[in-house]
């Protein structure tokens, strides 16, 4: 009888512990949860809402990523276009300088040739001088501000000199841009140099070295720079 009572008491006690502890836990849960906000919308609805919002978020973020990718692509393209444009511009500038379409400045030498009582300057003298200057590495040459380009001719017609089909008269000022040392030493070699040879022939030639020479662009009215017959070979 007593034993039975003890077991019953323990069992009832355990049951009480279980029930009351669970009840208190539930009380606390209910107290701590913001039921008003949640109870308005049922849990299932909330879940579906969360799912739909998540899906929307993912969709939007995917779109953002795609758009960013496109933006990047466009930017890259724009950059490459800019790069090519820059390259082309650079090339164009260099080509223009090469063919003499732009005014250029730089260090170099100026050679003055003038007629005297005995000897006149001939077109051959100028041709030879230009050849010498080119050999010495002149990058731009002009005679009396007539730019010497690859199509330039220097001819003598009826005792007058034509450069770029325009008349040029003495005194002649030949400007050359290039390495000063090379240019000046090439012309002033003892005995075999241009200046020595021609002064010994009795012609008046002087040379000066300048830090800053300006050579004008090719600006002849004649269209020397246009090709009628030449085409690019493929």
């Amino acid at each position: 009888m007593n034993k039975e009572k003890i077991t019953m008491a323990t069992v009832v006690g355990i049951v009480c512990i279980l029930l009351v502890s669970v009840m208190f836990a539930q009380f606390r849960t209910v107290e701590e949860t913001d039921i008003e906000g949640i109870e308005v919308a049922r849990e299932e609805e909330l879940r579906t809402m969360i799912a739909s919002w998540k899906a929307k978020y993912e969709e939007t973020s995917q779109k953002v990523q795609e758009t960013n990718k496109k933006i990047n692509e466009y930017q890259e393209k724009a950059e490459s276009v800019e790069e090519t444009a820059n390259l082309l511009n650079e090339e164009l500038a260099q080509t223009n300088m090469l063919v003499g379409k732009t005014d250029v400045t730089g260090e170099g030498i100026i050679v003055h040739l003038s007629d005297n009582e005995n000897k006149q300057i001939e077109e051959k003298d100028l041709l030879y001088l230009i050849n010498e200057l080119r050999l010495a590495g002149a990058e731009a040459i002009s005679i009396n501000d007539k730019r010497i380009v690859n199509m330039t001719e220097i001819v003598s017609v009826n005792e007058t000199i034509l450069i770029n089909t325009e008349r040029v008269t003495a005194p002649y000022t030949v400007k050359a841009i290039g390495n000063q040392k090379y240019l000046s030493s090439a012309l002033s070699l003892k005995n075999s140099g241009y200046i020595d040879i021609y002064t010994s022939l009795g012609k008046t030639i002087s040379m000066s070295v300048e830090k800053n020479i300006k050579i004008l662009a090719y600006n002849s009215g004649n269209n020397l720079m246009k090709f009628k017959y030449v085409k690019e070979a493929k």
Partner: peptide, 28 residues
């Protein structure tokens, strides 16, 4: 005796219930 067991059980249960972590609202 059973009454005492009930009272003790209720007190212990209350203490346990206050101290265990809260249950998520989903399972409440």
């Amino acid at each position: 005796m059973i009454l005492i067991a009930i009272i003790i059980g209720c007190i212990i249960g209350a203490i346990i219930g206050i101290n265990i972590p809260t249950i998520p609202y989903t399972y409440s």
